[in-house]
């Protein structure tokens, strides 16, 4: 291929990519950033300012929800890792032959249903007229119907449920590559379960742990359905506030500022996570 043809094919291939990323991702985000610094003085005049951001810090409801969402997302991520790790270990190291494939596929089953359907399933189970309440009454453990839905614990149960797949898959992939001999050597050198886990298994699995945690954290932080449908009056989620500003109050400037803040929070924590563990985005996602 000569140089001109090479240049031409590069141009032809680059154009759709550039159109997609610029028109659908970069420009909209630049515009959102711009709008977040615009202050509406009357219906047709705007000026530049940081009113929306000072609103965020002045109004305790905003930043409290912000911190709550961040903390709950980290808690969900940690729980998902704790629950998912033994499962991934079993699939990668203990199960054999057919059982392995079947167990792995079983982990994927919930994802044949959308988040809405999964959340709806939990609502049927947990609400006052739900199955758990009925079973507890049948067992005689409680006297009347109990409301298990609409609290933070229910939200966490739902969020962990939604996130498990994204933790188990990367963990299985990395643990698969761990040579059994390394683990045996750990025991032969006098290590107990805890030592081997800490010195051999976890360092090896770190790339999988990091990539699982990042994906789970991002998904949880940005989730809307589960906290909205399963949370109570006090379990506000930050995405709900963005939604309220845009759809109910029609205050785009404030909504854009909250959106920028959420984006900054998630990018910052992802970046910190990568930094602390010495990973990079390309390895984790691509």
């Amino acid at each position: 291929m000569n140089r001109t043809a090479g240049k031409l094919s590069l141009l032809l291939l680059l154009t759709p990519f550039v159109l997609w990323i610029v028109l659908l991702v970069l420009l909209p985000h630049v515009q959102m950033l711009r709008v977040s610094f615009q202050v509406r003085e009357s219906w047709d005049s705007l000026s530049w300012g940081v009113t929306q951001y000072s609103n965020f810090f002045a109004e305790s409801y905003y930043w409290r929800t912000f911190i709550r969402t961040g903390v709950m997302s980290m808690l969900t991520t940690a729980l998902t890792l704790l629950i998912g790790f033994p499962i991934a270990w079993y699939i990668a190291k203990l199960a054999r032959g057919r059982a392995r494939g079947v167990l792995f596929l079983a982990c994927l089953i919930p994802f044949w249903a959308s988040e809405l359907v999964r959340t709806y399933g939990w609502m049927i189970l947990l609400r006052e007229s739900g199955l758990f309440s009925g079973w507890l009454q049948a067992l005689g453990w409680v006297d009347g119907p109990v409301e298990l839905l609409y609290n933070d614990a229910a939200v966490i149960v739902g969020l962990v449920y939604n996130a498990l797949l994204f933790m188990v898959v990367p963990l299985v992939t990395t643990l698969d590559g761990l040579d059994d001999n390394l683990v045996e050597a750990g025991y032969d050198l006098g290590g107990n379960h805890w030592n081997v886990l800490r010195e051999v298994v976890i360092p090896w699995a770190m790339p999988g742990i990091v990539s699982g945690c990042i994906v789970v954290f991002m998904l949880t932080l940005g989730s809307y359905l589960t906290p909205t449908l399963m949370g109570g009056k006090d379990s506000a989620w930050f995405t709900q506030q963005i939604f309220t500003q845009f759809i109910t109050r029609f205050n785009w400037e404030q909504g854009a500022a909250l959106g920028v803040l959420l984006l900054v929070l998630s990018s910052l924590l992802v970046w910190l996570g990568l930094r602390l563990t010495g990973q990079n985005l390309r390895k984790v996602l691509g």
Binding site: L27, P28, H29, Q31, G222, I242, A256, S266, R282
Partner: peptide, 21 residues
């Protein structure tokens, strides 16, 4: 890396930014 960006942007934000623009 720019191509990977949409994966680290929460879906709500992606929707909001396109709406705003």
């Amino acid at each position: 890396l720019v191509m990977l960006l949409p994966l680290v942007i929460p879906g709500v934000i992606l929707g909001v930014s396109i709406l705003v623009f």
